[in-house]
Amino acid sequence: MDKFIEIIFSVSFGYAVLRVTTPLLFASMGALISDKAGVINIALEGIMLIAALTGVIVSAFTQSAFLGLMAAVLAGSLTGAAMAYASLNLKTDIILSGVAVNLIGAGGTVFALYLVAHDKGISSSLRSLVLPKVALPIISQIPVISDIFSGHNILTYVAILSVVLVYILVYKTPVGLQIRAVGENSHAADSVGVSVIKIKYTALILSGAFAGFAGAYMSMGYVSWFSKNMTVGRGFIALAAEAMGGGTPLGTTIACFVFGAAEALSNSLQSLRVPTEFVQMIPYVVTVVGLALYSSRKASQIKKHLRNRG
């Protein structure tokens, strides 16, 4: 038990939390934007994989980590656009489109990996690059704080920044206003000349772009290679975090950190002879419990509302 507390309050644990929360933050912002526009994007998982591999391949061939990142984000956006086409133009159910993208992401990346790296498990034969780590200017001077907050991969800071950006986009810009209107009452938006299709396309493309960042971080930051199914459900957890966070950027961020902490804990606890599988299960259980609590609170609010009415 002492050891347990020691882990939680250690500096390296704080650092690890930020490190594992980064992809969740990106992906959950993707979940948030599409959810705000009234489309549920369960393909975040698949898009992350596609982007992660794209980043590795492009950075290996161009020897530019930045180009790799751009390519990853572009791949994510394009996948988002393809989903939008399927669901809005061809009228494929959005959930099943998501299932399809996840399948293509899981299988297609392995297929492509073999073509370029001649390995079906890992991309280590490719000389791919990682994005740089950054020492924060003033903060890196402060002891303890510096060890937790400084020296992360650049994308970790971008992720935190992206929460702010998403907040501004959704709540402070005309497009954000239209996104929220479309998601809540598309007839209302339509009746004043807002193009519902255009807004949903925008949301899905942005959602894909964020998943693209998440994927790039996985293969060019979190680790320095691509491996088969390396996201292990992070896209789904991001979806749950968004649901648990009540669809607000702040709530979603908090939920992400809860999951991130659970994951970091599971990584640390593995050294403690706590059964690893049990520990690995923590984030998923936390998600379900969180979701249940959130829903039950919402359900009781609705009931109360109805009772006041009667």
Binding site: I40, I42, I95, V232, G233, F236, I237, L239, A240, A243, P275, E277, F278, Q280, M281, Y284, V285, T287, V288, L291, A292, Y294, S295, S296, K298, A299
Partner: peptide
């Protein structure tokens, strides 16, 4: 059950249960 009881999306929680089933089983 979570859906019926509290209207929690069965989609999201069922996705989590795939992983819970997996780790629990391996354990």
């Amino acid at each position: 059950y979570l859906k019926v009881k509290w209207n929690a999306s069965e989609l999201v929680s069922s996705l989590m249960f795939n992983y819970i089933a997996f780790f629990m089983g391996i354990y």
